[in-house]
Computed example of a mutant assay.
Amino acid sequence: MRRLLACLVVGLIGISPALAFDAGTEDVLDRMKVGKLVPITEIATLMRNAERWCYIEQEGSCSWSDIYLEVTDEGATYEIGNAWDADYDVIFTDHGTFEENRYICETGYDWVPTLRAINRADGTAVNGRPLWSLKTEIGEGRSEGIDCYDYILKGSDTAAETITLLQRQFTDGVTDPTNDVTVTLHFNADTAAALTWYY
């Protein structure tokens, strides 16, 4: 009888579903409701735990994406990647501060010196004069405005290990719904690593 029970236990262990989200992320989902604003303290947990944030995702490709490198009580440092044009993908590091337990806000940090570029055709690094030229072009077109962002929970998918948020942009305290974008948070490292950027 003991042997039969042991076999049953082993069998159940083999078929029981693995937890898709870490405990901290599960706690956030337990406290939040779909359609409601997510406090920035909860967003900070999602920033720490997600592998990549993919904006306006289409068939495994992102308009742009964030990887949160460091998250503190005061703000976050993150790596942004996107397709700059048909030839180049660009990646740079920016900083944001948490405000009013609601927003993450830009700081005006000059991220252009951190910019790296990749040839879209073959994935090789862009260096030397082509990189300098690209940095100059991007730097000259950089906006001086300071934007803040908050997030509404849209849903979660345990099997896919994703959470979906609506990001709203505020400039001088005013938001324009045409700037709202959907962001998919990927918690599976393999899925996140496979994401690309479309142009």
Results as ranks from 00 to 15, higher is better:
R116S: 06
E137V: 04
V34M: 03
K36H: 10
L115T: 05
V38Q: 02
T107V: 04
T45P: 12
T107W: 01
E100T: 00
E26L: 13
T97Q: 03
Y103W: 13
Q169S: 12
G81H: 09
R48D: 06
A192Q: 07
L165A: 06
R52Y: 09
A160K: 14
W197N: 12
Y198H: 13
G11C: 11
D73R: 14
S16V: 07
E137D: 09
P130C: 06
T97H: 01
R48M: 09
D85Y: 11
G75P: 13
M1H: 12
T93C: 08
W132A: 10
W84R: 11
G128V: 02
T171Y: 05
Q167T: 05
E51N: 12
T114W: 00
I43A: 08
G24F: 05
C148S: 10
N188T: 04
V34S: 09
E106I: 03
W84V: 02
G60T: 05
T182N: 14
R3P: 01
I163S: 14
H95F: 08
N49R: 15
H186N: 08
L46N: 07
L185H: 10
T124S: 15
C7F: 10
G96Q: 07
E59S: 13
R116L: 01
N49G: 05
T158N: 12
G141Y: 14
Y68H: 12
T114K: 04
N188Q: 10
L5A: 11
D94V: 00
D30A: 14
C54S: 15
T41L: 11
C105Q: 15
L185C: 09
V112Y: 00
L8C: 11
I118T: 11
L46E: 05
I13C: 15
R116A: 02
K36A: 09
Y78K: 12
A44P: 00
I56W: 13
A23E: 13
Q58D: 05
K154V: 01
G139H: 07
T114Y: 00
L115V: 09
T164H: 14
I91K: 04
S156T: 05
E51S: 15
V126M: 12
T114S: 15
D27E: 12
S63E: 08
N49L: 03
D85V: 01
G108Y: 08
Y88A: 03
E42Y: 07
I80P: 00
V174G: 01
I67P: 00
